[in-house]
Design a protein around this nucleic acid. Structure first.
Lengths: 255, 255
DNA sequence: TCCATGGTCGAACGCTGTTCGTTGACGAAC
DNA sequence: GTTCGTCAACGAACAGCGTTCGACCATGGA
């Protein structure tokens, strides 16, 4: 009693329907990374990722809680690519190697560092990396409380540098566009009223040149030297951890 | 020849039409800050800001280039609230005061620090603040190139801390929710397999407690001590600025 | 008095993350 | 071998976003 021909408007396209591969969490993360590498973080929309899999955005939600969930998974894939160097015992060397390895992994995936702002990644691979960093800090004699504080301190720095680097690459395209922009910025700085901005005017050229690895290394060096001093302060049993703490008379806001 | 009565569907509501005040750039920025303080950065949409002025989003575009333009203006309003303390000559004290003043201004406006990620603010008030920081760094003996690098280094740190603080306040509401979350995180850390995460497991409790001003001060102290060492290295004429530069054998990415 | 200028503003475009309800494929039970 | 229940796939829709378009009209100068 039901051998009516199927009306055209409810005809199923069996070709696409049969060709569907069942989705999986890993496949979705794979596709997300493909999109990320091709178009950056902003291009990594649910629809775009689904398109990469030949389906619609709604299909992803059977495997992924929401976009944040997906982003976290993507992040941990990136951290999985950090090649953790063999510890040599020279903790300064070991830390710098870890820092470069982390920065490299982040920069290998466009502006992925952008999503790390204010986020403490807790994926397995991120924790593995963090554990190694903590190990280095403990080996250099830093007490555990300060290790907990030093972690975000250095991690935020590495992330910020990686993001900066990706911004130069993406907004200016090539090295030349970047140089042009900074030259214009330098000219602007130099044209400011010297009585209001005495330092910026004088430093106009210096502020807008130099960067890359040399700058990254500078920051690492500053952080390491500071942390080393903290470790020494505790080694000698002195409690002089906070040299500047007497300067805190009026820290409050009053604006 | 045109005294037809106005059809009701194109009738102008003179009440609202007459009551309109002509917009201005400053009024829009004012409204944006009102929205920011009430609902945070994510709530600061063009429509919502326009609503605050009793109009539609399209009206804003006669005065503002785009949303980025508006955000930049809001940012510089915030930087205008930084009360720059009188320099005392003790550069360590002066810098810590500047850092606290900046953090206070940022934290006074919800999660505004969020939009500073990867941005170098170039508004008049931001430049004024930067100029003072540069002045302190130069007074402590840092060569200009390193001053240019130290600026973003400390500015990113202050921004990150301010954003962290605003996240705690917004996602957890009160102090109690925050404590609960970190306690759960600590329990999770403690439950990790110790052979894979030896340091995190041991430090589980330490990693998830302590923060606030004490942590902020720690970071400032680390940065200042590191910068001080850099300044001294140049004072003595030594070129030993990069202690760890021999560790750069294989910095490249290979993933 | 007329006209040109330019701010106002409703509607629309294309995009976002997410939800709903229908559909159909597949494995288990009878 | 048939039936049935479960669940993934998926088109459509919702509410929101930044931005643009074009009609509207109050105002200022000729």
């Amino acid at each position: 009693m039901d051998d009516m021909p199927v009306p055209p408007w409810r005809e199923r396209k069996m070709s696409t329907w049969a060709a569907r591969r069942p989705l999986s969490y890993d496949q979705i993360v794979d596709a997300a990374i493909v999109v990320l590498d091709a178009e950056g973080v902003d291009g990594m929309s649910m629809r775009r990722v689904a398109q990469e899999l030949g389906t619609g955005a709604a299909s992803l939600y059977a495997h992924v809680q929401n976009k944040d969930d997906l982003v976290d998974a993507v992040l941990d894939r990136v951290f999985a690519e950090v090649v953790i160097p063999e510890p040599t015992g020279d903790w300064r060397h070991d830390f710098i190697q870890l820092a470069y390895a982390t920065r490299s992994a982040l920069q290998a995936h466009r502006d992925i560092a952008k999503v790390l702002w204010g986020k403490v990644p807790t994926g397995a691979n991120a924790l593995r990396l963090a554990d190694h960093v903590y190990g280095v800090f403990r080996k250099m004699g830093l007490p555990d409380q300060l290790v907990g504080w030093a972690g975000p301190l250095v991690f935020d720095y590495i992330t910020a540098d990686a993001y900066d680097g990706s911004l130069y690459a993406s907004t200016f395209g090539d090295e030349k566009g970047s140089a042009k922009y900074f030259e214009a910025l330098g000219t602007y700085f130099a044209s400011l009223p010297p009585e209001r901005f005495p330092n910026i005017v004088v430093m106009a050229k210096t502020l807008t040149t130099g960067g890359g690895d040399e700058r990254f290394e500078f920051g690492l060096d500053v952080l390491l030297t500071g942390l080393e001093a903290k470790a020494r302060a505790f080694d000698t049993g002195s409690a002089g951890a906070s040299v500047g703490s007497e300067a805190l008379g009026d820290r409050g806001r009053d604006a």
